[in-house]
Design a protein around this nucleic acid. Structure first.
Lengths: 174, 174
DNA sequence: ACCATCAGATGTAGTATTACATCTATTGCA
DNA sequence: TGCAATAGATGTAATACTACATCTGATGGT
């Protein structure tokens, strides 16, 4: 805790400092996320964007999957998807295997939007990254990956950015 | 940054890796933020929480300041403050100096809420921090601070957690 | 003293988020 | 075959976010 820090008797190994810095960075990231979303042409809300990121990171998902990931009910998920479909950012596909399921996939526009936001963030972070001494980059990279992994973030591989062909045939529009 | 060394003797030495890791971490942080907010007793939205964080980090602010920080109009800011006041998380104070102004401050509940959320995040990040090799902590800490600073995040000093007395006298309730 | 400006608040309005209950279509299993 | 369970969609409703236009009150400079 940063609070009544009793000035640990044992010279701490810098654990608190790392944690504080991490929390600061965390708040900053949230602000950054909000900002990069606000400065966008289309008006996508944060929940909507999070849904897009899930699709971008994990590939085609069901409504229930996205809902769970976002911590909302299925009905809320359905509603959100309605809006994203209306905005042409995602598409619904029926799977032949299980006709109850609906697979959600990003449209090219959806992919472009995620890419755009990513680029914006990249822009804001470029100078920071460049200022990190080369010798530090390895540990910093490792630490950041650990953070992402621990918090439950998906693969860093942006396979989705190179809009590969959708693997689902549009059987019907639900 | 403690050592803003001009670096880059050789172009791109792990620069991309750091950036990717940073972006991953960024997405993870957003998800984490949403989660730590969802698992809360009181129902505070992300915009509301961001407002609280601004107050917590920067101390008493005006409506316009918070609005600017959050990237919304003044009227939106006023509305948001209305809700936060109704939830007893912030308080409005008139300043004698400029009677147009309204200073917003966190109530004890507000402070407690921010603290609670911080603790939750801390919990999720503890294991990560502990896993970072001691030798790495210094660079990692510096890098994270740089990120926070660059993105416009405030001092890491959590002075506000030790609920010091509010310096404004409640003259009237607007 | 006058008036432009600033800080906030309010009226109005559209869209989003979210949940609960309920309904349809499908699937899986006994 | 029959029926519970699953995946979504829909009806309904409360709350939040957001902006634009407008209004009040207070400052500050001329």
């Amino acid at each position: 805790m940063p609070t009544p820090k009793p000035t640990s008797p044992t010279p701490t190994t810098g654990e608190d400092e790392v944690m504080d810095a991490l929390l600061s960075a965390s708040r900053a990231m949230v602000a950054l996320a909000a900002r990069s979303l606000a400065g966008l042409d289309s008006d996508v809300t944060l929940p909507q964007y999070r849904a897009l990121v899930v699709l971008a990171s994990r590939g085609p998902q069901r409504v229930i999957d996205i809902s769970t990931e976002l911590g909302v009910t299925a009905s809320t998920g359905t509603r959100m998807c309605d809006r994203l479909v209306r905005k042409r950012l995602i598409r619904r596909y029926r799977t032949p295997a299980d006709r109850r399921e609906v697979r959600l996939t990003l449209t090219p526009s959806g992919r472009a939007l995620v890419k755009d936001v990513t680029l914006r963030r990249r822009g804001e972070l470029t100078s920071v990254v460049q200022q990190i001494p080369v010798a530090w980059r390895k540990p910093v990279t490792a630490a950041l990956r650990a953070v992402a992994a621990a918090v439950g973030e998906l693969p860093e591989r942006d396979w989705w950015l190179d809009s590969q062909r959708d693997t689902y045939a549009a059987t019907d529009e639900p």
